[in-house]
Every structure is written in structure tokens, then in C-alpha cells.
Nucleic acid binder design. Sequence first.
RNA 1: GACCUCGUAGCUCAGCUGGAUAGAGCAACUGCCUUCUAAGCAGUAGGUCACAGGUUCGAAUCCUGUCGGGGUCGCCA
Length: 624
Amino acid sequence: MNIEDLIIKGLSSAIEQLYGASTDVEVKIEKTKPIFEGDYTFVVFPLVRRSAKSPEATAQELGEAVLKTTPQVHQFNVIKGFLNLSVSPSFWAEALLNFDAQSNIPRKGEKVMVEYSSPNTNKPLHLGHIRNILLGYSIAEIMQSAGYDVIKANLINDRGIHICKSMLAWQRFGNGENPHSSGLKGDHLVGKYYVVFENKLQEQTSDDVALALEGRWNCKDQNIQKRYQDAFEKLGQAKEEKQIAKFKGDIKDLVRNQSDLMQTCQEMLRQWEAKNPEIIDLWSTMNGWVYEGFNRTYERLGVDFDAMYYESNTYLLGKDVVQEGLSNGVFFQKADGSVWIDLTGDGLDEKLVQRGDGTSVYITQDMGTADLKFQEHGINRSVYVVGNEQDYHFKVLFLIMQKMGRSYANGMYHASYGMVDLPSGKMKSREGTVVDADDLLQEMYDTAKAKTEELGKTEGMTSEELDNLYNRLSLAALKFFILKVDPRKRMLFNPQESIDFQGDTGPFVMYTYARIKSILRTANFDGCTIKIDLVLHATEMECIKLLNEFNGVLSAAAEEYNPAAICQYVLDLAKSYNKVYNEVSILKESNEDLRNMRLQLAWQTAQILQRSLRLIGVETVERM
RNA sequence: GACCUCGUAGCUCAGCUGGAUAGAGCAACUGCCUUCUAAGCAGUAGGUCACAGGUUCGAAUCCUGUCGGGGUCGCCA
């Protein structure tokens, strides 16, 4: 039983002795704020009705009772209605002796799939993907460590109009360029042709779009012409800026879709669906380039996957779910053949689940893929790491699976996260403000190298060791910066300023670890026994207290799908140990018992620092 | 128009299952390397927790409203 539970138990029995048994007041304690004396605080205000005494008097008599019920508490003080309890130093010494930094949370026998990354194959990865990837990987590691059996999954959107755009542009303008001939990383090469496509399309349609926005565009296709005229009329009536932009966009799309390029592209997609060998061949080749590129980025980021899903395999799934839903009355069909679910009773709208022509929409696939995941892996939970712009989509998806009576529906969770903003605002590919993942990683590496050389502490390290150090430092800085903020919130990333190596950063924690390891090396430490009747410094007790909180923090981080909790914790621990480091000397300590105790604390702290960092994908170094 | 979110120091963020005098880091200023790695430690300065009401012994935290940022409401994904 940990100390907090012991105190709660002691408090409860003290309260029962004084005021009788009752369940109306939940006994909970919190950490005492540093400005007051004590370790844990109990707030007695909710109790004064039962004690019929002043808050001070209640706290006083309760404190005296706790001394008797809880031997680990050796003194207390009362300020207003706050009862501050101090845990005896010998308890902390004993806690350090018994602490096992490698102890694991028992396995829960529960299988969890964490899906993350989930890229499109027409463009290289960027800063937004990085947040997703780091969160997904870290959530998976945290859950694994917290006792779940985790499967990391990646659902790749490898088909559709977007990849056809790259394919068509490459076919027409690529002159056979490939990653080998151009030296371009495969995903960047394919991304380049996506941009070529958009530029050519722009070139070929800008005149027509201009005409269309003046109402002077004519289309041979009567249906399109009618839709255009409708949209133009709405544009004329629109008042709000947002609406105007929307109708302008509609018109633009309409015109562009009639262009030769887009028509050919659509035809290419049809050919792909018809499994035209030539198209399939081109598609596999270009996707192959992309995967090679993605894999290099994943590897550099230090993340991996246990299961790969491809939309080219899953995009037809879900139609049987639609049939099932029609037959059991969860879905209904409209006159045009389209299939819907009515969620108005749940405060949402009617939602299309299959088009009139019988083809799938996004959510159709997701329904099918959800079934597939649960069937294939027998998982109890399924976590989707996806940006918060899809909050509504997942709300609907989960609700549908519930209404379809899926036993697993309650285990579905959308790990929703906020967008990454730049100082200039949102990242926009059209304005060229997208921060490329590979570029960013390289810049980070160069910065880590420059900072390290500036400090000049790496004498005698081999070039491999240095490379490893720069890699780990740069990743630590980046990962920590991104993961330390609450996933649900949008965050700001300034490429010039955001990455620091001092203060609340990954390198700071690494540094704390490396300094400890340096001492342990010098002392030839490989474990020792310690005495518990020693005088501990307040900073040391604080550090031991934090070590004992590790498992609790880990469990909470898992239940909340929140790597930021680990970041905040490991910062606290590193800061706490740095205080110890500055206050007490280990190697110069002549009292062997004291020296051993301090070595023990250093060793345990180093292990917890390392374990914590691994949960967020950061590796330590022995020297830096 | 409807719904969802966020608003804390100059900047980036903690704290939000209600509790004391709201915390870090960066930036600014002051100390500390003949003492285990100064990527560190100690300190100074910096706040009407967007605003207005309400609930409560007690509100940054819960409720309502207002303002401001972002998002969603596609037979796109």
C-alpha cells in the first residue's frame, strides 16, 4: 500500500473514531503546497458539520487522532481548516530502500489497438503528422507499460483521387523521374508531382474560373451547368464572408472538375477501381516510393507499427454493415437509393452511410474497418489518434457502432488532438508555410550539434557516439516540446524559437540522467544496501516522494491517453533531483552509509528518468 | 444559423474530479564553477486567471450569458 492510501486509511479510521461512521464525506488528501510545512493535506471544512466544532479545532483533534492511527505520520500542523501532515523521515528512508524502479504494473489481460499516423500517400509528412505520430507512439508505449497489451496500427490512405493526381502529373510531366535518378526521397518525389498537378490545373483553369465567378461560364453538360447557375445565384445572395468563400470554392471546384486534367484523373481512378494492370502498376510503383520515404522518417523518429492497414484493401468494407443496418432498421434508405442513419434523437443530424450509387463514403469504410480490427485481433479497446477536426465524425461512428449493437463499441476512443499552429497561423500548403518533417528533423539535428559543440564537453567521443548524441538530443528536444502540452489543446510551434535545450526540455532531463550516470561510474556503483536511520535532506525526501508517485502517474496517463502527464512528471523529478545534486555531495561524503543512501537515490532516480523518457520515445545518453 | 472547443505573467505552457498566498520554463536582472558535467542551482521582477453574473464556508476550476480565437455541420477524406 502506498503512503497516500495509508494516510487516507488512517484518516478514515480517525474520523470514524471521533465522529462515527459515515459515507457522506469522501476522504481525500492532496499534496501540501511547498509554502506550507507538511507532505499531505486534508481539508476539514466538509467535516465541521459533523464535528460541530470550528475548523481549527476539528483539524487539531483530527491531527492528534491521526498520529495514533497512522504511525507513518509523525507530526502535523493546522492552518485554518487545513490539516497538514508530515510523514516521518524514517518512512522515506525505508521507502527508498524498498523502492524498485523496475517494478511493473500487473498485466491487465486487455488488448488495445492504437491507430496513429494514418497518412495519405500523395505528400510527405509534415509537422502536423509529427504531433500525431509522437502522440500515438507515446500513448501506445504508456498503455503497454500500464499493463495493456498494445497493437500499434497504421491505416494508410493509399488510394483515391489524391494519389491519381500525382500519378497523372508524373505520367505527363515526369519524364520517367524516380527516387534513384533524382536523388529525391520517394515521398517527396510523389509530393512534388502532386504540386505539379495542382499548378498545371491552376494554369489550365484560371481563365474559366475567372469567367465563372463573373457568371459567364458555360458548360455543355446540362446538369453541371444547372449546378453552376445555382451556386452562382447563392453567391450573389451570400452576405457573410465565410459563405461567400464557400460558394466561390464550390464554383471553382465545379469548373476545375470539368477540365481535361481532372476528367482524366477521374478516369484514372475508375481504371484503378477496374484494376487496369497498367494503372495498378504505376500506382504500386509510386506508392512504393512513398513507403520507402515514410519508413525512413518513421525510423528517424524512432516509431514503429505492428499492424498495417491499407485503404486499397479496406475501402470496400462496410457495405455488409450497411446491409445489416438496413435489415435491423438502424439505417433507412431514401428514394434515390442512398442509405442514412437518423441521429437527430441523439442531438446530431441525419448522416449518410452509403451513396445513392451504392459506393462507400468515409464512414462506411470506418464501420467496416472497425469490425475488421476487432475480428482480426480480438481487441478490447480501439484508440484512434486523429485531429480534433474529426470530433464529429468519430462521435457519429461510435454512436453508429453502438446502435448496431457492437459489443466493442464502448471500447472505442477518439484520442483527439489540437492543430499545430505556426506564428503565421495555420499551416497552409498553398502558401508554402508547411513545415516538412524531414527538414525539421535535419534542422533539429544541426541545432543539437551546434549547441553541443558550443559547450565543448564531448572530448574523446567517437564520431558514431557524437552522431548518436545529436540524434537523441534533437529528438528529445522536439518530442518533449510537442508532447508536454495537453494533447487536446492546439499548440504553437515557432521553428526558430520553439526548440530549446535549456529549461523545461527533453535535453534538460537527459542531462540530469547523464550527470547521475557520471557519478555512478565514478563510484563504481552496482547496488548496495542502505541503513534507514539516516538524516535525509528535505530535497531528498521530496525526490523519494516523487519516485513513489511514478506508477500512479503512469496509470493516470494511460487512462487519460495523455503523454503530457509523463512530461510534467519527469520534469518535476529532474528538477527535484537537480536540487539534491546541488545540495549534497555523494563522492565527497565520508560516511559510508550516507554515501550509499545517496547513491541508491541517484540510481533509482536515473532509472525512473529513463523509464519516463522512454514512454515519450526519448532515449538517454550516458554522457553529454 | 446550430453545435463543439479554447482564452492563466511580454512569450510558450502547467494547475481545471472546487480548497490556503495561482506555478514552471523562455526572455530581463542578481548571485553561484580550485567542490560529483553551469544543457545546472539559488534569487529579483512580472497576474483584476478574457469579461459579467450565479452556486458555495471557499471558484482559474462548476453553471449561465457576453466578447474573442479555432473547429465542425459534404453523396470530400
